[in-house]
Amino acid sequence: MRYFWGFIFLTVPIVGVAMFVYSYARTDGWLPPNVASIGDEIDFLFYFILAITGIVFILTELLLVYAMMTATGRNGGKSTYTHGSKPLEVTWTVLTAAILLFIAFYQVPTWARAKFYGQFKERHPDVKPTALVIASQFQWETRQALWDKEADKPGELNWKNPNFRDSFVMYNELHIPAGEPVLIYLTTRDVIHSFWVPSLRVKQDALPGSVIPVWFDAAKLKPEDFGPNKTKEIEWVCAELCGWGHYRMRAKVVVHATKQDYYEWLKRKSEEQLTSKPNQGI
């Protein structure tokens, strides 16, 4: 009987590893394709944790199966009489603690790079917010500043009180240039939503009553990734339950191949806005 049950318990590591290998092999690397510069670090940390937890998983499951299969009461039909082993327990406690502490502190720099606004500002002091992203049930509204003709550069986003004279609105679409760090301000009209672009490795809840800076880049897109319009569309979804239409809050980030292409698009868009009637603005 112990072999039968041992085998049943053995299916857990076997099927688990098989499922992971299958989905890794069938999906070209499993995680959504990464196009962000922070993505390499995050993906590396994922595989790093996967390696450690995978080894621990396989070893402990096998040890459990081994323990089950050999638990036959070898001391004259009795178990080994022991209440524990201090050296063994101290060893595994210290070892586990060391590994866990290493995992924890090893990841802090990546987290800081991904999320500490101060660090971002230090690295890119000149980056201005390109868009105000306002979530609401169940759509994403993006506001971008109009092209400033006099200065011949994108206008400054008046995010505190934007209006149709200085910015234009789009729904479920966010345009960014490739290769550049992009800063957006994120907020919501009604409930909590979450800004998630899997391929950019960025996720941030939008909080009612707060405006949260979010930054990312699409630095790793190659020239051949862009379509005939020299744009690449990336999926952008809501990740926090925001009501019955949560599943419908799917949008796209449109990456323009170069900064120049992005500026061209912005100019075109501003032209449209200024030639349309004002009351169509908001």
């Binding site: 089950m68 009461g73 595994w92």
Partner: peptide, 12 residues
Amino acid sequence: FNWIFTVLGGNV
């Protein structure tokens, strides 16, 4: 670990 080592060498 303690659970596994309880089973190990037991008479299950």
